[in-house]
Structure formats: C-alpha cells, structure tokens
C-alpha cells in the first residue's frame, strides 16, 4: 500500500516522459557500479577476499571495495553484531550517502546465529537499519555472496518499477521505529553526530513514521550539530 503511494508520488513528480528514461539510466548505472564497505565484524569477512580476487572476481560485476562510508554504496555486515559494535555500524550506515544498501552476511545477522543466547549481541540487524539482502549460512560460500550481490543488483535495476531497491528510504520514512529499537538497546541518551531528521527534511524523504515519540525523546537529549555557516 505504502509502496504504491510512493510510486505514484514519484511518477507524479516527473511529467517529462524522458525523465523515466533518465531515471532508468541512473538506476542501471547504479546497479552496474557498486562500491562496498565491508564492516568485518565476524568470521564472514573471510569469504570476501576470494570473492574479490582472481577466483571469483567481483570487479567484473562492477563491484569494488571502498574504504570509507562516504564513498560506499553497500554496507556489508559480515557476522555477529555486538551491542558495542552496533553503535559503530549504525554510525557508519548513517554516514553513508543514499542510495545505500545493507547486506547481512552469515546467519548471525539474521537472528543472532550461534550467539542467540548472548546478552551482548544484537540479534536481528534489520531492527536497527533496513537490510536489503540477507545471505544466510555459517558461513556462506563466495558463490552465495555473489548470488546475493546479483540479487541486489537486480533489485536496484528495477528500482523505479518495483521499489525493491529502496529499502534505504525506509530508514528515513520510519526513522522513529528504528530509533526506538536503537534507544531500547543503547539507552535514551543515544544519538549519533548525523542528523537524520534534518537530512530527511532536506531531501524530502520524510514519511509518516519519521516523527514519533522516540524522536521526541531524541530531541530532548540531542545537542544539534548544526553546520558552521560562513559569517561576515
């Protein structure tokens, strides 16, 4: 229901018939060129080198590793996420620039895996950020990783038609929910230097779920980091 609305809204914005061609072209390029940031939290990271190097060669799919969240399109979380790590994963995710995609590799990101009983491990990654693709397995083989990446590419390519590659918009549109889960884990004074609400406002990504009781809670503790403006 919501997705349809979004599609309609998007179509209403663009009256130029060529605009779709242009959008499709951008989507196509986005699917063909993916820079990934691997946040190597657990053992799953060991599967990435073979996926990148001569055996499987990710670069032929247009995927290459990048170093900082600013440059990256995909955040690969490759294993269990402890509460302490999760803070950094969230900061990293928020510092990435949209369109951004999250891939959870290994079972640990799906449901905590073998750390299910651990008190210090976040169980479901998609409680805290929208995950595009999960690649289950303990650990998944490089073929599975590539398969997952291919799936993501398909989603991105058909973004405009099916809205499958737009999971990142969920984070802005339902920020309150995600923030609530984060606050539940880290306490009510939780905040990152990235001002998601301002970003959502600036780019028109607000949804019904952007504001809520959790964001109100945030507003109370937040020391807003406004950019330093040039002043004469």
């Amino acid at each position: 229901m919501k997705k349809e609305l979004l599609i309609k809204e998007k179509q209403a914005k663009r009256t130029n018939p060529l605009a779709h061609v242009f959008d499709d072209f951008i989507d196509f390029c986005q699917s063909k060129s993916l820079f990934m940031l691997h946040y190597c939290t657990g053992c799953g990271a060991i599967e990435l080198p073979p996926a990148m190097t001569s055996r499987f060669d990710m670069e032929r799919l247009g995927i290459q590793p990048m170093v900082t969240p600013r440059q990256a399109d995909i955040l690969l979380v490759t294993g269990y996420v402890s509460v302490k790590t999760l803070k950094r994963v969230i900061l990293t995710y928020e510092q990435m620039q949209a369109p951004k995609y999250v891939i959870g590799i290994c079972s640990c990101t799906v449901n905590g895996g073998m750390y299910w009983q651990s008190y210090a491990t976040a169980k479901k990654l998609n409680d805290y950020m929208p995950v595009d693709v999960y690649i289950a397995g303990c650990m998944p083989r490089p073929e599975a990783v590539l398969e997952g990446l291919q799936r993501l590419k398909e989603n991105i390519k058909n973004d405009r038609k099916q809205q499958k590659g737009s999971a990142w918009k969920e984070y802005f549109a339902n920020y309150d929910t995600y923030l609530g889960n984060q606050q539940h884990l880290f306490g009510d004074d939780w905040q990152t230097p990235v001002d998601i609400i301002a970003e959502a406002k600036l780019y028109g990504l607000e949804g019904e779920g952007t504001y809520g009781k959790n964001t109100e809670k945030l507003a109370k503790v937040q020391q807003p980091l406004l950019p330093q403006e040039m002043k004469l």
Partner: peptide, 17 residues
C-alpha cells in the same frame, strides 16, 4: 543533487564518535 552541509563532528573516524 544538492549537498547537505554537515558539522565537522559528522566525520569519518573509523566508526568513532
């Protein structure tokens, strides 16, 4: 698209706040 101006503490520091 237009860029969002950010504060300098919103900066990449290897996940550090």
């Amino acid at each position: 698209s237009k860029a969002k101006r950010v504060h300098q503490y919103d900066n990449y520091a290897g996940g550090h706040f």
